[in-house]
């Protein structure tokens, strides 16, 4: 990190624990440490991925940044402001698209602007521009059910961009689309990122995806959720699909793979607990 870079996100000594119900036989509650002593700084315009297995707390961390999860201790700042609830500094894009089915594509993109009380004409103009940016102008008047999964996710990106947040938070956005579409969306995302200069935090369990997209990859390990290492990805941009078969790419891949392997000795106990917790807190996303 160069000293002249502006820090957009700063996380210091962040911890987050949940009360987890024990089995009926044991009774009572136990504390589950979802995140422990997270320290991370992200500079303006950076693309950073969080990778790790299910239950390592990567999504939990993302939702803390979005102001949707309450931290237990530590300090989280986005654009210099401490995060204590949802803010318009961050825009989140979820795996399940979360488009409003009763709104047309145009109106979906305008949603955040309505909350921000942007005048109607301006709202329409901004939304139209963003729908064009993600290449779906022909569908502005359509309803979400008429779109494919990949298209819906592009609209979700447009919607998050609409109210102009400084940071885009993406929670496994491409996990539900097929491989080919995913590759197209990767290139599309990088193009949009290049155009908008947003800071992006991208959660994924795919190592390849993380390396291909990111400036840096934070490797997270579970029980308790911690950042084990942050790796700089020094692959020249713009990156094309072929880069994935290059030698340096596979070097990064095996390095991250090893970091994850070393910490993979999760006990079965922790696994069930984690899964149960995820089912309880994110029913919809867990099923999808």
């Amino acid at each position: 990190m160069k000293p002249e870079d502006r820090i957009e996100i700063s996380i210091e000594e962040l911890s987050l624990s949940y009360n987890v119900r024990k089995s009926k036989r044991e009774g009572g509650n136990s504390t589950f440490l979802a995140l422990q002593d997270i320290n991370l700084q992200v500079r303006e315009g950076e693309f950073l991925s969080l990778v790790g297995p299910s239950g390592c707390g990567k999504s939990t961390l993302l939702y803390v940044l979005a102001g949707l999860n309450k931290k237990t201790s530590g300090c989280v700042r986005v654009c210099g402001e401490e995060i204590n609830g949802p803010s318009l500094h961050t825009g989140i894009i979820m795996q399940a698209y979360a488009l409003f089915p009763w709104r047309t594509i145009q109106k979906n993109v305008e949603f955040g602007l309505e909350i921000k009380r942007t005048p109607k004409a301006e709202r329409a103009k901004i939304a139209a521009g963003l729908i064009e940016l993600v290449g779906l102008s022909d569908f502005a008047g359509s309803y979400p059910y008429e779109l494919s999964g990949g298209m819906k996710q592009r609209i979700a990106i447009a919607r998050a961009l609409a109210y102009d947040p400084d940071v885009l938070l993406m929670d496994e956005p491409f996990a539900a689309v097929d491989e080919q579409t995913k590759n197209l969306l990767h290139e599309e995302l990088l193009r949009i990122w290049g155009k908008t200069n947003k800071t992006i935090i991208f959660v994924t369990h795919s190592i390849e995806e993380a390396i291909f997209l990111s400036d840096r990859v934070a490797v997270m390990t579970p029980n308790p959720g911690t950042i084990k290492a942050v790796i700089d990805i020094d692959i020249d941009r713009p990156r094309a699909g072929e880069v994935k078969s290059s030698q340096e790419f596979s070097k990064y891949r095996s390095r991250i793979w090893q970091l994850l392997q070393n910490s993979a000795e999760m006990t079965d106990d922790v696994k069930t607990e984690t899964v149960r917790h995820m089912l309880e807190t994110r029913p919809q996303e867990a099923i999808i």
Binding site: G91, I115, Q284
Partner: peptide
Amino acid sequence: VLIRSAKSMSIGNIGLFAKVIIPS
């Protein structure tokens, strides 16, 4: 998921009912 998504955009309680819960 929709409620969460709307909340992430700092929607108020009245807005949440008017724009998310009642339409759905």
